[in-house]
Design a protein around this nucleic acid. Sequence first.
DNA 1: GCCGTTTTCGGCCCGACTGTTTTCAGTCG
Length: 577
Amino acid sequence: MDNLAIARVLAEIGDLLEIKGENPFKIRAYRNAAETASHLAERLADLTPPQRLAIPGIGKDLAAKIGTLIETGSIAYHQELLQEFPASILDLLHLQGVGPKTAALLYRELGIRTLDDLEAAITQGRLRGVKGIGEKKAGQILRAIGERAQVAGRRLMAEATETADPLLAALRAHAPDGDISLVGSLRRGCETTGDLDIVAGGAPPSVIDAFTGYDQVERVLAHGATKSSVLLRGGFQADLRLVARESLGAARQYFTGSKAHNIALRDRALQRGFKLNEYGLYRLEDDAAVAGADEEGIYRALGLAPIPAELRENRGEIEAAEQGTLPVLVTAADLRGDLHMHTTATDGRADIETMARVARDLGHRYIAITDHSQALAMANGLDERAALAHAARIRSVNERVEGITVLAGIECDIRADGTMDLADECLAQLDVVVASVHSAFTQEPEQMTERILRALECPWVDILAHPTGRLLLRREGFRYDMERVFAAAAERGVAIEINSQVDRLDLRDTQARLARDRGVTLIIDSDAHSPAALRNQRWGVAVARRAWLTAADVLNTRTLDELRPLLRRHRAAGSRR
DNA sequence: GCCGTTTTCGGCCCGACTGTTTTCAGTCG
């Protein structure tokens, strides 16, 4: 049983407890544990019971329940709750405007178990007379049922940013003296996001009207004096919060989250005799404002170094901020090159020279052209002969393009048995070899582990690319023993990629952090298939920052002179990094 | 259900908006 399956059960228990009206803190404990489980880099099933107990937010009871779940596939407590409430009523909770109380009421009063039941009940007027539900509420629910497919779902970080940028520009144009900025999960650099959160400080009240009147707004969900929510065309929700300038830092802190970070921070505030809300940090004894205009002041007043938004997940950043050990996170400006991209030789859209010029204009000092190997026949993958001919063309581009060094590489398939798709003699003649899995994703974890380990044994492999093969919102990655692969990569000096394609971002944040902790060097590559996609490294940088990586942890922050000796072909046989 | 250099019991983050209400519960973030 994997972490996501465990997380789903724990989250479902949380939902069921909420419908039941249980202690809110007990509910939070289950949800908190679900959140933790879903982001944990190590597999819970691979941990010993004491190791599970050591995870923050998992105590004796939850550790035991998780153990039972792993061993038997279910938790009795969960099954008992499902006896009280059918699992299908949890769908009701996802409707805008329907929470646990309403769901419980509908089930108890009218026996409503499914969305279809609810829709029928409303259209038949059976909700009339139910306490707390009037005409408007019923209409709202009916609309939510109709819109659920459209509204449901998260967006990729890149897509959400594309939606946010023009909206921010429109608000800034309306309120040029205001300070208007993106907060929420997008500011934290999360790989996907459920909505857009915007904070405006020192802007006129009319900015709210500019927001609800934005031309991409499909429907206004809420419209107050300081807070407003809209549904944008395409079904993406955006929230705007207007605060006074002296509260801007507090509002940005509050709405950037994460929820777990904020709870921990406010707990810390209380312990130190303060109250923290979206307006500021106040002394409990006399309500005097201590900080609020900027985020830094709030963190400092709480005895913390300012915490970068990407780290605010309550995964150790508060302790590190207290001890002054926060990492200096890698930035896009630290990147000097890009070692994974494609051209028209296989499935890219531009030729070598175009890619080189665009990369140079982006500020890169070196790139590697790494087209596909023969196994990817549908992408016109290259065989040994074609790969070497392509390498010659790549190297010749250096004579025509100034200001950047173009390395001849390959993205070589790791075949199902772990052998490389091109012969060693060919790989040995290239400058860089990127190895990837593109087939047989469904191998058992044991087999996949052996497959990747075998690939890392090939002395010419420099980089393991998109190491889980996941596609965000579409496909889970393949499973294998990451600890063993990380250990082998660290031992052999193979870099592991954070792939910056908008729907890959693979490795993910927590896994990249674990890899680094195990001594692996990471690399942030674009895997660009077009010149425009070379800019995608910014998304990979966001993941790297969420993984606590510094420039020193990332291979392509090195100069070319520093990089070359780190490639395996340039290392003395048997030597390690 | 978790957690503890003021606690092994008694805490646990905080406020805006809406709809159904005559003072507030529910939802949301």
